[in-house]
């Protein structure tokens, strides 16, 4: 049996973390750990080495870009794919948007349904859909 996909969710919105945990766990494929601040998330990533990190962009202690940059710095976490889930995306290509600033193609705009979330995670990890 292949082990479950370990997902680390870093988002200051506690209720979002709550539901992500509930819904992904219910799928049966995922183990979810959560952090509600950037710093906490970096520590958790270093220690738990998740398969994928779901990252919010706007957080009070540390903006998402900085968290991503910090993760890239540490050898342990540098290769973990990051999926940004953010309320700021608009699906248009105005040159000034944050998407281009991140330089990372994995972005999901909020609000997103669980099904889409799972699809995207599996796509990123090149795992087949169930």
């Amino acid at each position: 049996m292949t082990r479950n996909i370990k997902v680390l969710t870093i988002d200051d919105e506690a209720d979002f973390c709550f539901f992500v945990t509930k819904n992904l766990t219910q799928e049966g494929m995922f183990d979810v750990i959560i952090a509600t601040s950037g710093k906490e998330g970096i520590e958790l990533a270093k220690n738990e080495k998740p398969d994928i990190i779901l990252l919010d962009l706007v957080m009070p202690d540390m903006p998402g870009e900085d968290v991503a940059a910090a993760l890239k710095e540490h050898a342990a976490t540098a290769n973990i794919p990051i999926l940004f889930i953010t309320a700021l995306a608009t699906n248009d290509d105005t040159g000034d948007s944050k998407e281009n600033k991140i330089g990372n193609n994995y972005i999901l705009p909020k609000p997103v349904r669980t099904k889409k979330l799972i699809e995207t995670i599996l796509n990123i990890l090149r795992k087949p859909l169930p």
Binding site: E13, D15, F16, F19, V20, K22, N23, I85, A87, P109, K110, P111, V112, R113, T114, K115
Partner: peptide, 12 residues
């Protein structure tokens, strides 16, 4: 959008 997201996930 954050609350909307929670509603989505909750509905799921």
């Amino acid at each position: 959008r954050n609350p909307l997201e929670i509603i989505y996930m909750g509905m799921d």
